[in-house]
Computed example of a mutant assay.
Amino acid sequence: MLTDHLGLHAEIGRLFAYVDERWDGKGRPGRSKRDEIPLAVRIAQVARDAAFQRMLGGVTLAARVIRDRAGKAFDPDIAGVLADDAGEIVGLDDRGSAWDATLAREPSPRSTLADESIESALAAMGDFADLVSKYLVGHSRGVAALAPTAAARCGFAPTEVVAVRHAALVHDVGRVAIPVRVWERVGELTPDDWERVRLHAYHSERILSRSSFLTRLAPAATSHHERVDGSGYHRGSSGAALTPAARLVAAADAFHAMTEPRPHRDALAPAAAAEALGREARAGRLDPDAVAAIVDASGMPAPRIERPASLTEREAQVVGLLARGLATKQIARALGISVKTADRHIQNAYGKIGISTRAAAALFAMQHGLAAWGELPIASRRGRS
């Protein structure tokens, strides 16, 4: 299935049925042996083990292990070729770029992805990362279903909605850099394992940075564990550093994760997850508008969320529009209220926040996730006064 999503030839997909077979027939599922195993797989098996042994103990160890396993796990002819020329085949220059070397060896004609094939490839990347644990299967696709729906309801432009969906599909690719045992751990994580978990977002960022196209997705894709109050990870970013897209993906990731079982807890019902997400917003960790949009997209009633500085919903909306640079008359027109009413909301908000200038209001809005998104006014199903 992954090969289909990546646009690879069907014959490549069929090869994966043989990857755990052995030359001596003692592999899994044990239905093939010797020349019944396709040549490409026999070569890949030797190369895979040689690369691993080289990482453990260098070229000499790789050559010795491969030679010892010839005629058992591996095709003896292929194993012999590698063992005899291990210095040239396995002795790679670590100073070079494995990424560049791999791209240079791509067979011609080279494939180019566009339109739907791009999304299919991104979905395959997310699916592969989710396979790291049975508890994570389907997580990336679930987040990618929620986030763009919420983005559309927030007034994002069509191209921005697509970008949110793409970012959500690959937000967790860095999980593959973390040992499986960490994701499967039932008890409390050790300090070292917790640090590994914190770094999976960093690894996602590094993976995406290798491609100019994927780099554009990184700000939204790799900030899903950041929080508006700066308490998240891996950077500890807060406020204005988090884009609207990043805040949506973060809320979608949190909601969907809550509705999935984990080794240390059961899954929450959607209604309970919605309430938990609301508590995160009220505590100032998740963006209130992102939470409302994600919960709405999930089909659950939007939770009641207290705004910072005890602002009312309308006052919070007005402050967000001030951050967009709108004058009082423009705010009144956008919200369908009188200029006098708009000015009263502005003055009330100033008093509660303890400020006196529009610049300070804009800074407050950015720090607390109140900056208005998309078209005006902000889309919402909740009544505002």
Rank of each mutant, 00 (worst) to 15 (best):
R198I: 00
P191A: 00
R165D: 11
D193W: 04
R198D: 01
R210F: 02
C154I: 01
A245L: 10
V164I: 00
A245P: 12
A246L: 06
V228P: 12
T159Q: 10
H256Y: 00
E195M: 00
H166D: 01
R198S: 02
V180L: 07
D192S: 03
A252K: 15
E260F: 07
H203T: 00
L208H: 09
S209C: 11
A221Q: 02
E195P: 00
A167M: 06
G236W: 04
A252I: 07
L248M: 12
H234F: 08
A267I: 03
R165E: 14
E184M: 03
T215R: 14
I207M: 09
T243F: 04
E160I: 01
R185L: 06
A240Q: 10
A240M: 07
R206P: 05
W183V: 01
R262W: 13
R262H: 13
A240C: 12
A150C: 12
V182K: 08
V164P: 02
H234R: 14
P179L: 08
A152M: 07
R196G: 11
T149N: 08
A245K: 12
P191Y: 04
R247S: 11
H225V: 07
P148G: 14
A151E: 12
A157F: 05
E184V: 01
A246P: 05
R247G: 13
V180A: 06
L217N: 04
V197M: 10
M258A: 09
T190R: 14
D172C: 12
A151S: 15
H200K: 05
D266E: 14
R235C: 02
L208Y: 07
L208R: 07
S231K: 14
D192G: 03
H264W: 15
D266Q: 09
S223K: 01
T215Q: 13
E260P: 04
P244L: 11
G155S: 13
H264R: 13
R206G: 04
A241D: 10
G155R: 06
A252F: 10
A167Q: 03
R181W: 02
T190L: 04
D266T: 15
D266S: 14
R153K: 11
R210I: 03
A168R: 02
V186K: 05
I207D: 06
L214P: 10
G174W: 02
S204Q: 10
H264Y: 14
L268P: 11
H224D: 02
A267G: 13
G239E: 11
H171N: 05
A201P: 01
H200C: 03
R165H: 09
L169I: 02
L248S: 09
L242V: 04
H256Q: 03
T222H: 13
T215P: 07
L214E: 08
I178A: 09
W194R: 00
G155M: 08
E226N: 12
P263S: 09
R198Y: 00
